[in-house]
Design a protein around this nucleic acid. Structure first.
Length: 595
RNA sequence: GCCGCCUUAGCUCAGUGGUAGAGCAACCGCCUUGUAAGCGGUAGGUCAGGGGUUCGAAUCCCCUAGGCGGCUCCA
């Protein structure tokens, strides 16, 4: 059933009201704004006279329990007209605290379309001391019948949120909570959150030795440790091989360029706030740290005269770009300031656009399948007509958007359209994947661009001997290595599939008299391009197994007297446990089959 | 950037105004080990940095940096 029609949704909506009632009783002068149910609970945005701290949540929760126990009946009231609605807001919803507390509610009333019914929900009861509690809120509903039904809830955290989501407005205090129909479900949810923390790529990244951050290097600038770097290279090798099959040509371009390049591309106009501070040399030429690879690839395209027979030209580069993200937006590897895109730009003729676009989407699907990410949504980001952050003409945008929709239809792919999520030069198709905490992240992306070819006056000579303008496809199947590795780490909880695992096989000699045989075995495996370590620590086998389990090594090969004598190895698999002794050849056949 | 919270040994965390602690990891020694922690010992800290209050600050206040959860913004 649709969540928004469910009892749970109703319960959470009422829980938000209950919280708001508790807040108005505890904090005179608190101005309420909106308080909807959300995916895993509810929130209420409130303007407090004094800063509201997280440590105050138990106090609010306690008050909520008291108010819940009063079993206040919740009733609906319909305002007869706008004027009456206004009077109810001014006089009744402010809990007797004066009309200035109704500021946000009055704005909300104005936003309700003229013909629509205006409704309020009221909860009211008298406690044992004879004190009357009442709470009235402008609300569409629906709600549960009485507050006694709201029993299994918890206030989670406090955050800031701009009124109406607009940075120009005042920041309100948002209190997040959750509520369930039973204590068991609430406990399960809280338990799931704890579990998710254990999958957190920032925790696993340290435990597994994948990457690190150093304050002295700078925030948002990851340092890749050997095992993390191995992951990057393995992923890169896989994609490069696929690209080779598909006619991509590698290119390499610098990390900085003259500001002139970015003036021409339009980045200075539309992407300025994302650029790191400019560099100026003694001749006063200004350089910019690159935020995108496309202008460089465009210059390579422009370096020679292109015939219609040369197209499509597909230029690929794992290009590292730098974007000055706001400090509060950084999030482990999922949002950084320096990252490497598995970038490529396809320069195509109009008659090639659809096939090339589809080819790219098919490659992206192959990549996702190989990585084991099957849970994603497809988002088509289009231009928000009200925004000024885009370059180019309307007809170009229309053509590009039409091309993407046509491709989706031909691929019979389901997608959602999201206005305002286009790149500044063109619309795009993005793959969205959730992290361990359920947050959405944009991964792979394909973009259709008529605008940069125009700005750079790109041409090819057509069959008619006349110049024509190519169309560009920008694409990155991973999106960025940083984000993809962060996400994969959470997806696999650090237990990467064999082909990707930084250490594929850990050889565990039982006593140090087996070290030599272990080294010889490792050498043999490495010759077959397997990634192998030998654990020569002077520890018991149990300890070595424990440590290598923690490191999530897919296979452990145990080597003791029996094995040296019989020419076998004791094979242990990360998930399947002890697989018994077998010959090295048998083990290799098993590994090859799995790769 | 904004709102709230956090920062004690390499890691996870005790310690709330009166001499800085534990477990794991590290190092040393013993043990030479057969499928998830063998035993003993040693070393390790400007309590993020700076300023203030106080006879006295890890502890209270201010500033800065970094991190976490959101908002806004994006691969």
């Amino acid at each position: 059933m649709d969540y928004e029609q469910s009892d749970l949704y109703k319960l959470r909506h009422s829980a938000a009201h209950l919280m708001a009632q508790a807040v108005t009783e505890l904090y005179p002068g608190a101005k309420l704004s909106i308080g909807p149910p959300i995916e895993n609970g509810f929130y209420y945005d409130i303007e407090f006279a004094e800063p509201f701290r997280e440590e105050e949540l138990p106090k609010v929760e306690q008050k909520m329990r008291e108010l819940s126990n009063l079993k206040q009946p919740i009733t609906k009231r319909i305002a007869s007209d706008r004027n009456e609605a206004k009077q109810i807001i001014l006089q009744e919803t402010t809990n007797g605290q004066g009309p200035e507390n109704a500021f946000y509610k009055l704005e909300l009333l104005e936003a309700i379309p003229a013909g629509d019914e205006v409704t309020f929900f009221e909860q009211r009861a008298t406690d044992k001391q004879g004190k009357e509690h009442v709470f009235i809120d402008l609300c569409r509903g629906p709600h549960v019948e009485n507050t006694g039904q709201i029993k299994h809830f918890k206030l989670m955290n406090v955050a800031g949120a701009y009124w109406r989501g607009d940075v120009k407005n005042k920041m309100l205090t948002r209190i997040y909570g959750t509520a369930f129909g039973s204590q068991e479900e609430l406990d399960q949810y809280l338990h799931r959150l704890e579990e998710a923390k254990r999958r957190d790529h920032r925790v696993l990244g340290r435990e597994l030795g994948l990457f690190m951050f150093s304050p002295i290097v700078g925030s948002g600038l990851p340092l890749w440790l050997p095992k993390g770097a191995t992951l990057r290279e393995t992923m890169g090798d896989f994609l490069k091989e696929e690209q080779l099959k598909r006619g991509y040509d590698p290119v390499v371009t610098p990390n900085i360029a003259s500001i002139k390049l970015y003036e021409k591309s339009g980045h200075i106009l539309t992407f300025r706030e994302k650029l790191f501070p400019f560099m100026e040399d003694e001749e006063k030429e200004t350089f910019v740290l690159k935020p995108m690879n496309c202008p460089f690839h465009i210059e390579i395209y422009r370096s020679q005269l292109r015939s219609y027979r040369d197209l499509p030209v597909r230029l690929a580069e794992f290009g590292t770009v730098y974007r000055y993200e706001q400090s509060g937006e950084l999030a482990g590897l999922l949002r950084v300031r320096g990252f490497t895109q598995d970038d490529a730009h396809l320069f195509v003729r109009p008659d090639q656009l659809l096939d090339e676009f589809i080819g790219v989407v098919e490659l992206m699907m192959l990549v996702l399948k190989k990585l084991g990410l099957q849970d994603y949504t497809v988002r088509v980001g289009t231009r928000d007509p009200a925004s000024t952050k885009y370059i180019g003409h309307e007809e170009n945008w229309k053509q590009a958007e039409d091309a993407i929709v046509a491709a989706c239809q031909r691929l019979e792919m389901s997608y959602m359209v999201s206005p305002g999520d286009a790149a500044f030069y063109g619309p795009k198709l993005d793959l969205i994947v959730k992290d361990a905490l359920g947050r959405d992240w944009q991964m792979g992306t394909v973009q259709v661009d008529y605008n940069l070819p125009e700005r750079f006056e790109l041409e090819y000579i057509g069959e008619d001997s006349k110049p024509h303008r190519p169309i560009m496809i920008h694409r990155a199947p991973f999106g960025s290595l940083e984000r993809m590795i962060g996400l994969l780490t959470e997806h696999y909880a650090g237990a990467f599939p064999l082909w990707l695992s930084p250490v594929q096989i850990a050889v565990l000699p039982i006593a140090d008299r087996h070290n030599e045989a272990a080294a010889a075995l490792a050498e043999r495996l490495r010759a077959l391009k397997l990634r192998v370590i030998v654990d020569e620590s002077r520890e018991t086998l149990g300890k070595k197994i424990r440590e290598n389990q923690r490191q999530k090594s897919p296979y452990m090969l145990i080597l003791g007297d029996r094995d040296v004598e019989a020419g076998t190895v004791g094979v242990r698999h990360r998930e399947e446990g002890d697989l018994g002794a077998m010959s090295v050849d048998t083990f290799l056949a098993k590994v090859q089959a799995e790769l």
